[in-house]
Design a protein around this nucleic acid. Structure first.
Lengths: 111, 111
DNA sequence: GTAGCTACTTTCAAAAGTAAAGTATTAAGA
DNA sequence: TCTTAATACTTTACTTTTGAAAGTAGCTAC
């Protein structure tokens, strides 16, 4: 177990947050827990995201090997996004995080 | 256990991220795991944060009862920030999140 | 009377995000 | 043949958010 107790470790934490701490990253990752998705499918599923931001986020997540991008030479083109092993490891963490939020911040209708 | 599997639940998740998914929130919360801190102390401890953003984040976290703000009528004034019970519950989650990052994204010197 | 302390606030420029329309490639229908 | 449609982006113009730096208030010690 690592503990953040000095400035250097704080910086490491901020590096991590820079990669998956943004407005859209976790939402996209969460959706991919249920399996691979195509671009338009993600766009329909992530509430309020716009094309430019989805492209940017997918590029970023792929760069850090959290998701992988698979292109099929069909017409029109098909692109599939899915979680890598690294990405899949986030499932219990993001689940806990979401549940904390539901219990402590936001009461959604079905609770 | 809650699962995000529809649009409505995605929106709930985004509400949660709006509150603690920002660039600075988790860094501040993490520092407060080690106990109450004063304003200038936080400013020195959170790398690269500026006054304006620290004020804004502390106000936001206090609004959602994740931290509490205690003012002492000393000269010069003293203000103490600490985690509420809600906030303390984030400790294992943010710890796991940080450890995931260290293992999968960022290798800090002491690892 | 001047400098210093804390916890902010204000101002303005820079960066990031949003909305809407456009692009390439092919294929199917009128 | 000409129009429409589909996917996965790109581009442009605009708005919002963030950041850096300086300023404020109230008192105190030198």
């Amino acid at each position: 177990m690592n503990k953040i107790n000095n400035y250097e470790e704080q910086c490491a934490f901020q590096e991590i947050l820079k990669i998956i701490g943004g407005k859209w990253s976790m939402s996209i990752i969460y959706i991919l827990f249920s399996g691979k998705k195509r671009f338009n499918e993600l766009q329909r599923t992530v509430p309020h995201i716009n094309t430019r931001m989805l492209v940017k986020e997918l590029k970023n997540l792929a760069e850090y090997k959290i998701i992988s991008r698979k292109v099929f030479a069909t017409v029109p083109p098909t692109v599939e996004y899915s979680l890598t092993e690294k990405g899949k490891k986030l499932e219990p963490i993001i689940n806990d995080f979401y549940n904390w939020g539901v219990d402590n911040l936001y009461e959604y209708p079905g609770k």
